[in-house]
Design a protein around this nucleic acid. Structure first.
Lengths: 336, 336
DNA sequence: CTGAAAGCGCTTACAG
DNA sequence: CTGAAAGCGCTTACAG
């Protein structure tokens, strides 16, 4: 029952002997499609179970040339949305018998060195596909992954140069939703707090906000620079408070900065949502905290990860993977 | 340079041919300890590099019986401290050429089923060690891991029955620090907000708080039930506000519940820290947010993960792994 | 110090 | 439908 016979791992040969068949038969019994007499298969599978046998994946991969491994490189798990996406991805892979080889690429000093060893490792494991998630994985990392010649998938971001496939939340569409929402509340002086410079998601979100505004003949009274951090939101609130006339709504690039914005606005003596509406993006757990009660745009996390795994599992992938955009939804809470 | 020759992977045989030596020599050149003439090794390594060769880990593992794989099972990455610990662990392993096989065990419906497939997978990869992290991984999961007969390490929690080794933050000591801190501020009516029922960390933290109080001849005016969530802290604040006389300090089981506590206290019209001090535990990123500015106890994350990896790498492990406790530190901020 | 040979555990044409 | 045989890419005694 425990996969061992006298201290050593039980192999297909052990099962074969016990079941009175050849090793080939054991191998076939485990492949659904292989021709094996039904009763034989049953007997083999049963004795395999009794002996606690399961095929050695390493040997399997070596001989068949197929690996279950998928490289997953992420960064900044400290950002709740990254953690959520990553966790959902790992869980989905697990359910599909895909095996994630995880790499944390926290940008900064060690990034390049870490990247080298990561790619080295990936190569040595015969990995054939890599998924990059989180906007914080730098373009340098993307370039390096593309250079490997492996199939690279992007999750929740796309490549501006269109060099590789991606499955993303349609954040531009989500931005339109948010903008329309504050407009419907009768807000008229709407500011935007931008996300991390250079990030695809940041550009798209901002574009969505602006589109939503212009659809109704409006435009932003200001676009404040930001970087997706709580801190930048807190600081930007001072700018908001100084503006004349004051904005009556702020569309923030993400929830983290929206949380900071709310705190900062309170510090400036402004009331949310009475004086000003605040909308975030991502729907992280903190958005639901009573201190923020943040209206936000949620990402289709589950659809994204299953769509991505779908691609990874596809045996006949297209020459070049497309960029798929999945719809976001508005999550109304108390902040606006 | 790209690890492929005419579309296929380059093997040791290719390098051997190119360098004019036998395959054995190529293999030896990559093992530091093996006898190889210095100039030979250099030549081999150089041509390997030119050809983009690196040993196939799968084959290596198969023949040598050593796997670089370490099972890592975690749960609830939505809890920032879990995400941090997990990220640090993965990063540390990466640096040490250990390969984490990650499993997300979100408790609930699928836990048992997920557990089965996880263990099945682990077995099939010839994994020999498992590290369990996060208090939220249930005892049922621990039992199942122990049943495999593999070496199981606990990170940031211990087993009450002492069945397996662990490396943890000394949260009891951290609790003492926190209690002493509020006492030094002259606080006298100190309440405790408890953590998740049954969790080792929760028990230890509470014990530390109580110890710290009793060291100075004090004791808690109340121990409120909690579950480590932001919500429970928010709710507990109502109880605090109703108490007569009101407590002037609350020692919370973790930062999440401390954040909720602060929000709840404000909602009750109490001022922090003027009316009441609030102390958390974990030092998650949110603790530093200006809305909370939470005084807390930080975990020795880096020492913990490197100590753990040390154990994993140890070729001559003790019969039974010890429980190592690493010291926590008080992080003073504005909440008390 | 170096090469030929055996073997890790498995899959997959190849003949029956 | 089934077995014998070759081979995936590597390491490691075993003889030189």
């Amino acid at each position: 029952m425990d996969g061992r016979i006298a201290g050593k791992t039980v192999t297909a040969a052990d099962v074969a002997k016990a079941a009175g068949v050849s090793r080939s038969m054991v191998s076939r019994a485990f492949r659904e499609t292989a021709y094996v007499a039904a009763d034989q298969r049953e007997k083999i599978l049963r004795t395999a179970k009794d002996l606690g046998y399961s095929p050695n994946v390493l040997a399997q991969a070596l001989i068949s040339g197929k690996t279950p491994f998928v490289g997953v490189v992420t960064s900044g798990l400290a950002n709740p949305i990254h953690a959520e996406l990553y966790g959902a991805l790992v869980q989905e892979m697990q359910a599909r018998s895909l095996v994630p080889l995880s790499f944390q690429m926290n940008s900064g000093d060690g990034e390049v060195a870490g990247l080298r060893t990561a790619i080295e490792t990936i190569k040595r494991f015969e990995v054939r596909q890599i998924v990059l998630t989180s906007f914080a994985v730098s373009d340098r990392v993307l370039d390096a992954c593309l250079d490997t010649g492996l199939r690279v998938h992007l999750l929740n971001r796309a490549d501006d140069a269109g060099r590789t496939g991606a499955v993303c939340a349609d954040v531009a569409q989500g931005g339109v939703l948010a903008a329309r929402h504050v407009l419907e509340q009768g807000r008229t002086r709407i500011a935007i707090l931008d996300g991390a410079p250079g990030a695809w998601t940041a550009r798209q979100r901002r574009a969505g906000y602006e589109q939503g505004l212009s659809n109704a003949g409006h435009s932003a009274v200001a676009v404040l620079p930001g970087d997706y951090s709580e801190r930048c939101g807190f600081l930007a609130a001072e700018d908001i408070a100084r503006m004349q006339p004051r904005p009556d709504a702020v569309l923030c690039a993400n929830d983290l900065s929206a949380c900071g914005m709310i705190t900062g606005l309170h510090a400036q003596g402004m009331r949310v949502p009475d004086d000003i509406a605040v909308v975030g993006f991502d729907d992280i757990p903190q958005a639901a905290w009573s201190s923020f009660d943040l209206t936000t745009v949620s990402l289709p996390v589950q659809p994204m990860v299953s769509q991505l795994c779908e691609r990874v599992e596809d045996d006949a992938p297209p020459e070049i993977d497309p960029v798929t955009l999945l719809p976001c939804a508005l999550k109304r809470r108390g902040s606006g």
